[in-house]
Design a protein around this nucleic acid. Sequence first.
DNA 1: AATGAATGAGATTTCATTCAT
DNA 2: TATGAATGAAATCTCATTCAT
Lengths: 198, 198, 198, 198
Amino acid sequence: MASSRGHLKNSSPAPKRAYESLLRAGTELMARDGLDGVNTNTIARAARVGVGTFYQHFGDKFALHRAIVQRGLEGLQQRLAEAHRASKERALEDQVRAGLVALVGFAQEQPDLFRATFGRSAAAARLGLSPRPLERRLRDQLEQGQLHPAVEPRIAARAFMEMQVRSVVHWLEDADQLSPKALIETLTRLHPVIAGKR
Amino acid sequence: MASSRGHLKNSSPAPKRAYESLLRAGTELMARDGLDGVNTNTIARAARVGVGTFYQHFGDKFALHRAIVQRGLEGLQQRLAEAHRASKERALEDQVRAGLVALVGFAQEQPDLFRATFGRSAAAARLGLSPRPLERRLRDQLEQGQLHPAVEPRIAARAFMEMQVRSVVHWLEDADQLSPKALIETLTRLHPVIAGKR
Amino acid sequence: MASSRGHLKNSSPAPKRAYESLLRAGTELMARDGLDGVNTNTIARAARVGVGTFYQHFGDKFALHRAIVQRGLEGLQQRLAEAHRASKERALEDQVRAGLVALVGFAQEQPDLFRATFGRSAAAARLGLSPRPLERRLRDQLEQGQLHPAVEPRIAARAFMEMQVRSVVHWLEDADQLSPKALIETLTRLHPVIAGKR
Amino acid sequence: MASSRGHLKNSSPAPKRAYESLLRAGTELMARDGLDGVNTNTIARAARVGVGTFYQHFGDKFALHRAIVQRGLEGLQQRLAEAHRASKERALEDQVRAGLVALVGFAQEQPDLFRATFGRSAAAARLGLSPRPLERRLRDQLEQGQLHPAVEPRIAARAFMEMQVRSVVHWLEDADQLSPKALIETLTRLHPVIAGKR
DNA sequence: AATGAATGAGATTTCATTCAT
DNA sequence: TATGAATGAAATCTCATTCAT
């Protein structure tokens, strides 16, 4: 936790130590207990900040949750975009794998953020990780006869988005965790783009 | 509810009108608002029963939820067992499809029960729908070289269990619902037993 | 507890099995948890009787308690009266001892009844064990110059009544109980009629 | 809006007006109605404080009672220790009397605190006023042949502790109160150290 | 900006009591 | 008489939110 002691003053215009502290504490607690399992007082205490300070930064518990989810999604989307960019010329399977590598890598680096974002309150996922791109891709494949005609793109896209994310959550919470490689390869094989191939 | 008094025998030892009423109201409300979105007062009122009556039958909100989940799982498991029995001599794909027909059929007949059981508080699913049988089957296939070796049975089993159930929940809640046929066929194609085939 | 088994039917006009059962259960529970620590439902269940039956016999919890206390006091007073009759020609110390023998004997035979009557809700004692006779006796002794003039009869009488009874309760509840003899002799020595002698 | 920092000092780290107010109100009500006779709402109202404030300071009714008892015992023990120190060179009877003067003096000055601590819920006394010191003293006297051999120190010590305290409670609650002098002298005469002398 | 004591609306829970059978 | 499911008033307790400092 690199804190800027040693300087004369804090250098950045608005350090927002309290804000960051609340975000961090909230992430940790919501990862563990879910949105409905924590309360503002507990979060403030964990952040070593007064309750009042909480309300100075966030309108309520849900605003904090939204901020966490947003941060989680931003980081993830950035990684996914990068993975997409880097792999879009490669084979389909490699593209899928690259996306999963990004997803699992992100989850490994920030497990609490991942769980707070995609854990219990799964509704959060809807806020930002849209199944639409996947749905479009599946529809394309379908039109080109590369996908089994019984696969309905809308259903398959949504189903896989949820599955992906929930599988990673389970994996994070599993006591005897299998290797990230196993997780990535398994989900790759089950990806509709691959699995649904005719 | 035909109050069949005056008959030769009482069919059950205690009428427990309130119990059934609470279970029904709880199912409806939890389907709509989730476990964390309801409170005992509301449930009691909806069941047209005194608050105290709630506590006479259930220790707390969670006990009611457990009772609902149990009822949901019992009905579902029975249907699944039947489907399994009826299809076990048939082709693999037919077996998978039969299971999904049973699942979707159950969800269609008792949508509130299904949503209350598998909705938001997805954790509930763990109480009864074990991924172990599927895991075992995948492991068998793997050993017989029928499954892509990169598929890890434990992960795949859990992933699909969740996907299945959450897809049905989404489907139930979707305003412009696609046909049950589309749902069943799509999930069949994505089932690891089929999708993971080498 | 001589119960009239052996007859074809209960011989007494109203056997009141439920009544006795409630009294017994109430005594046991109130001895353990005190008047405020039990509730009517619990008592009825312990008595293996319906709640409604409780109210058929006792107006409320306090009525039951009163009945218990009354029964306790009746039994005790009878024993004390007997002890008094048998010892009134003997020496003062012997009279005191005889009373304590009766008290402790009663407590030993019916510990729950004793505790329910004189335990926590000490107020009950006031209902029946009056300090007046002792007060009168002390006043007599005082007038005859046999008691230390600083001893105020009213205070001494009440003090000793409480002490006696609470000492026996403690003794009953004490895990490593001393002999009844020790209890009796100690209280005899501390009895104001003896202790206050000049 | 005047930011009142810069004043001399804040006398205590937290003002805790409500805490004191609750302690005071609780003492008054528990003195009158006993622990089982009050409820948190009533206490909060009497303290002119919100219900929530009660729970901010005390986990429940019993925690408040414990705090009251502790406060009662602290004050009392201090006084008793002082009395002991001041009289330990004097005659035995004077020592006993000094202790009683302290006890009764304390009860007179803080009758509610005394009754809340030693009243109905006598169990509280066990929390702090140990009969052990008295027991030890009696044992010494016994060994030196100054005490009647029939007196069992453990029983006598406990008996007298209770008697003392309950006599003072009765005295406080007695409408036509006798003089404190009478109370003190009577209890002095009944004290086992004096009364049990051979 | 930061604080945390104070708040009260509302959720949870208990229990004496009733009443239809 | 006996029953026990049903009841709701009241007690217990939680927590998001405010506000004076």
